[in-house]
Design a protein around this nucleic acid. Structure first.
Length: 358
RNA sequence: GCGGAUAUGGUGAAUGGGUUAUCACGCUAGACUGUGGCUCUGGUGUCACGGGUUCGAAUCCCGUUAUCCGCC
């Protein structure tokens, strides 16, 4: 299947259940995105990878013409599932949808992702909670390393094209919680396994900014510079700038889309909650410095009204705007890097979002 | 005009002589970082007005006002 080329640093909108919520695939495409996420955990539970394979793969199933990356489900097993039991073989858990029992192993997750057919697939990992004591973090990290090797072995055991599948790149995931020495060990262990790309997982789970930046830096200092490095789940605009400064190439985050559904928009002057009463008579654009269709055609007062009335167009417009904001920010980052102006851009964004957590 | 009933936040209800008047919705403010369009957390009323009984009244009594129902 033909796939788009992707310029980095890149932000990937999250399309967990084979949809970037509230957007049509062509809207996401028109906003300038070439690569979006899907999720193994959700898609395995519903509608199931076999059905998606019968549909001709994930791209065809959801009508997306760009490239896709599927997350392995490691994160959801820990964030979403009910009762779970971690064994040497994998993780047994209960579905958050109907309570049914399932077992994810490195091998099963590779098989599921092979059937889904995304361009980039992720190794099965364990995302340790935060805070987390050293011994547990070390154990989870070592388990993640063993699982990474098993994912690689399972991946290599299948001739994807002969099996009617597509080319897929398998990325390994670094863990190690907020412990610098574990991060270093993990990055070295993964680098030794020689993946075509690497992710830094287990961050943005509650640790402070300094800790996150230090962990990121420790990882990117070790992971090969000529391969894509992906900071999973990050983040807010300032967080992305921080990570780009430390050598990260890829990002994904639910903030622009999830917060949009909560009426929160990112603007050139910080974040706004359009549900606030002060916008009831504000007939200006969402973000005066934005050129997206939502800003060109609609007012804050209108969008606030849509949210008050629980109209579906509200989340659609704010999602559209936020995705435009992120796409534009990434474009600015790439341009700034190309002309050696990144430090200035970073300061600009930091001052814009000063005092905002989001 | 006569008789009866009811007056609790923006709305609908609950409670009931004794510390901060309960619930839902609404409104309002916030949270959300490999996504539940989920959810969570705050705030939002001196119980129509006046007088009386009582150690103490949203609660009991009287009056006023308002609304509703019935009758002439």
């Amino acid at each position: 299947m033909p796939r788009a080329s992707v310029e980095t640093p890149v932000f990937m909108p999250v399309g967990t259940q084979a949809t970037v919520k509230a957007m049509t695939p062509s809207e996401v495409r028109d906003l300038g995105y070439d690569l979006i996420l899907g999720n193994t955990y959700h898609l395995h539970l519903r509608p199931g990878e076999d059905r998606i394979a019968r549909a001709g793969g994930l791209h065809r199933f959801c009508g997306w013409e760009g490239a896709m990356l599927t997350d392995s489900g490691g994160f959801q097993v820990f964030s979403l599932a009910g009762l779970r039991r971690i064994g040497a073989d994998g993780v047994e858990f209960q579905s958050h949808i109907d309570g049914s029992r399932h077992l994810f192993t490195p091998e099963s997750v590779m098989e599921t992702q092979r059937k889904l057919g995304a361009d980039i697939i992720m190794a099965f990992d364990e995302c340790a909670p935060y805070p987390c004591d050293y011994e547990y973090a070390k154990g989870a990290m070592e388990r993640t390393h063993r699982w990474a090797q098993r994912c690689k072995d399972a991946y290599n055991a299948v001739d994807r094209k002969a099996a009617g599948g597509w080319d897929q790149a398998l990325f390994g995931i670094v863990q190690g919680a907020a412990y610098q020495d574990l991060r270093q060990k993990s990055a070295m262990a993964l680098a030794d396994m020689d993946f075509p790309g690497y992710a830094i997982g287990g961050l943005a789970v509650g640790e402070n900014k300094e800790s996150r930046n230090a962990c990121t830096e420790r990882c990117t200092g070790i992971l090969p510079e000529d391969k894509p490095r992906y900071l999973m789940g990050v983040g807010a605009p300032a967080d992305i700038l921080d990570a780009v400064a430390r050598g990260v190439d890829m990002f994904d985050c639910v903030l622009p889309t999830r917060n949009a559904r909560n009426a929160q928009i990112f603007t050139r002057r910080g974040v706004l909650n359009l549900r606030n009463a002060r916008f009831a008579d504000d007939f200006g654009p969402l973000d005066p410095e934005c050129e997206c269709q939502a800003c060109r055609r609609h007012t804050r007062a209108y969008v606030r009204h849509l949210f008050q009335a629980k109209e579906i167009l509200g989340p659609r417009l704010t999602t559209y705007h936020n995705l435009h904001f992120y796409a534009d920010m990434m474009r600015q980052i790439r341009d700034a890097i190309a002309r050696d102006g990144f430090p200035e851009l970073m300061m600009e964004y930091q001052s814009r979002f000063e005092g905002d957590d989001a």
